[in-house]
């Protein structure tokens, strides 16, 4: 699945297994990196848990990029990524997207309190996606979790959560800011979740131990970390 698009002769290929939430940001970065270096970058988006599992099973992936440091840690402990190669390159932010606006504005919890308009609240699966766990923490600290529990549905990733809301099948969703920044939430109402309501989501990248191009992969990871890219929090 990774090596489907065969690179041209002589041009090395770096396969980046990335969390879906990071894909839009990484794609822009990968394009500029490809231009600077003579390399081809292939993005392999998916749930962090699935990609971590694939790396453990020996999938031909060179770089692991995740919004959940726990997975990076698990891979480092198992010797599947180089511990010394781990870099943090940004901090993910959680937003509330909704199909409707709340009159008079209010804070980020307003759409979640307009009970008559609310049938389903979509979050990423907290067991497998860091934004899911963050969403659960945020709703819990806002005192909404128990009341909303019957309305909560899980998406496999924030990308699917956003798709649920965009198609109107869910009324409200909690997703990564990066998806909104990449223009994927057009037509939806967006509100930033209070950052104190959840633990920050550290975005990390690491070189896979089995990579055939460890130096090139490391250059990619380092460049990513030094870039104040779109994945980084927008100063307010």
């Amino acid at each position: 699945m990774a090596g489907c698009a065969a690179p041209g002769p002589g041009i090395p290929e770096i396969v980046v297994g990335t969390a879906s939430s990071l894909e839009p940001a990484l794609r822009a970065f990968a394009d500029s990196f490809e231009e600077e270096e003579n390399v081809r970058i292939t993005l392999l988006p998916g749930a962090s848990g699935v990609i971590a599992r694939q790396i453990e099973e020996g999938a031909p992936i060179d770089v692991f990029a995740s919004a959940d440091p726990a997975y990076t840690q698990r891979l480092a402990d198992g010797g599947f990524v180089e511990p010394a190669s781990v870099r943090s390159f940004g901090e993910g932010r959680l937003v509330v997207v909704s199909t409707f606006s709340v009159r008079g504005g209010g804070d980020w919890t307003s759409p979640l309190r307009s009970s008559e308009k609310l049938r389903y609240v979509a979050i990423a699966n907290p067991r497998t996606a860091p934004y899911g766990a963050a969403a659960r923490d945020a709703l819990t600290s806002a005192g909404l979790w128990d009341a909303l529990a019957p309305k909560i549905v899980y998406g496999e990733s924030v990308a699917q959560v956003l798709q649920f809301v965009r198609t109107g099948n869910a009324d409200v969703g909690l997703v990564a800011r990066s998806l909104v920044d990449a223009g994927l939430a057009e037509g939806l109402h967006v509100a930033d979740v209070d950052p104190s309501a959840y633990r920050p989501i550290a975005e990390t990248a690491a070189v896979v131990s089995a990579s055939e191009h460890p130096l090139l992969a490391q250059r990619f990871v380092d460049a990513l970390a030094s870039e104040p890219g779109p994945a980084a929090p927008v100063p307010s």
């Binding site: 599992r53 979509a122 067991r127 497998t128 549905v153 899980y154 998406g155 496999e156 649920f164």
Partner: peptide
């Protein structure tokens, strides 16, 4: 979707566990 007790069938639970 994947809603525990409502739509999380065995196949989905297995996928999640893996």
């Amino acid at each position: 979707g994947n809603v525990p007790g409502r739509t999380r069938t065995m196949s989905i639970a297995i996928y999640e566990a893996v």
